[in-house]
Amino acid sequence: MPYAFALTVILALVAALQIALAAGAPWGRLAWGGSHVVLPTRLRIGSLVAVLIYTVIVVIAFTRLGALQVLPQGAAVVAMWIVFGYFALGIVLNAVSRSKPERLVMTPTTVVLTVLSLLIALGAGSLVTAA
Rank of each mutant, 00 (worst) to 15 (best):
V56D: 03
T8E: 05
L118I: 03
Q73I: 01
F87I: 05
G66D: 09
T41F: 12
G85T: 02
G34K: 09
A50R: 05
A23E: 10
A20N: 13
V105I: 15
V96S: 01
V105C: 09
F62M: 04
I91L: 14
Q69F: 13
G123P: 03
M1K: 14
A4N: 05
I91K: 15
G34R: 10
A12I: 04
T110I: 14
L43A: 08
V9Q: 07
M1W: 12
R44G: 02
A67E: 08
G125I: 06
L11A: 05
G123D: 03
M1P: 08
L127D: 04
G28Y: 03
H36Q: 12
A79E: 07
V9G: 09
G28W: 03
L119H: 09
L118G: 00
M106Q: 10
P26Q: 06
W81C: 07
A50V: 05
A76M: 06
K100P: 02
A124K: 15
L71R: 13
G46N: 04
M80A: 06
L118E: 00
M80F: 03
L113F: 05
I57P: 02
L104Y: 06
A124C: 13
N94Y: 01
R44T: 03
A25N: 00
V51H: 10
A79P: 13
A22W: 00
L17W: 11
R42Q: 08
T109Y: 07
L43P: 11
A20M: 14
R44M: 05
A130V: 11
T109S: 10
M80Y: 02
R29W: 07
L93Y: 13
G28H: 06
T114K: 10
V111D: 09
N94Q: 02
G24N: 14
T109C: 06
A20G: 15
I53Q: 08
A23T: 10
A16V: 12
I91N: 14
P101I: 06
A4V: 09
A23Q: 14
Q18I: 02
V111P: 11
T129A: 03
L118W: 01
S47N: 10
W27T: 11
V112F: 09
